[in-house]
Nucleic acid binder design. Structure first.
Length: 216
DNA sequence: CCACCACTGGTTATGAGACA
DNA sequence: TGTCTCATAACCAGTGGTGG
């Protein structure tokens, strides 16, 4: 099965190689699963690299990576062609923001200040230095095809489940929340009361918890 | 009946400012 | 400088209304 998938990926790669990322995003949003897979595969190492840039005591590295992949998925879903930014730049923004938000949420729940995590992309000598801690201690990029396929399948399943269990409002609130907006900002954006946002988030969390427990 | 949503009220964590 | 108070944001549980 894994072998078949690898072959499929090779075919997909060939069929999308002459297209721009923006064109492939359009195809993915139109329901083209191969296009979506291609993008997720193409940017996977980028996400993994981003995930490695953050360290959080007690956190599983794979958790941070999964958050990054969710950010990538959201970038595909939300990318707007009428904006000037390239998809790559937009994806980088979404992935980074998703990871940082996840770290913030995790630390808040344990009542530990956010500053307990550090970015390995921080310049090591001074602010102008281009050499980062990451450059010094960077490891080998994960390139095991089996691991790549398995993690992508896992991500796809999680995304499908989330989409099924959440209402439209809950999904909108969740997306804004993950973008780092406050309850007030979300309430303003969606023309709702802050408490509505609050409750929506509580429901989202309950549903996601239930969803994740089911998977364990 | 059930899912969705709004509302109430309590708890907890955090930061800012006052004060000894 | 350390401690206390207060405001604010976020979290959580429970209850009730509404529409399909």
């Amino acid at each position: 099965m894994l072998l078949e998938k690898r072959v499929d990926n090779g075919e997909n790669k060939n069929s999308f190689i002459d297209k721009t990322d923006e064109e492939i995003v359009i195809l993915a949003r139109e329901g083209n699963k191969e296009a979506l897979d291609y993008l997720l595969c193409k940017y996977e190492n980028f996400v993994r690299g981003k995930a490695k840039s953050y360290f959080l005591i007690g956190a599983d590295r794979e958790d941070i990576y999964q958050e990054g992949m969710i950010g990538l998925f959201k970038a595909i879903r939300d990318f707007r062609l009428d904006k000037l930014a390239s998809f790559k730049a937009f994806a980088e923004l979404c992935v980074t923001r998703q990871i940082i938000t996840a770290v913030k949420t995790a630390t808040r729940q344990k009542h530990i200040p956010l500053n307990t995590y550090i970015s390995l992309n921080k310049p090591i000598y001074d602010e102008e230095s281009e050499r980062t801690l990451m450059d010094i201690i960077s490891g080998v990029k994960i390139s095991d095809p089996e691991e790549l396929v398995i993690s992508r399948e896992e991500l796809q399943n999680i995304e499908n489940e989330i989409g099924q269990v959440l209402s439209e409002l809950e999904m909108e609130v969740l997306m804004s929340y993950l973008d780092g907006k406050s309850y007030q900002e979300i309430a303003c954006d969606l023309d709702r009361q802050a408490k509505s946002i609050d409750n929506a988030l509580q429901r989202v969390k309950r549903k996601l918890e239930k969803c994740l427990n089911k998977r364990v």
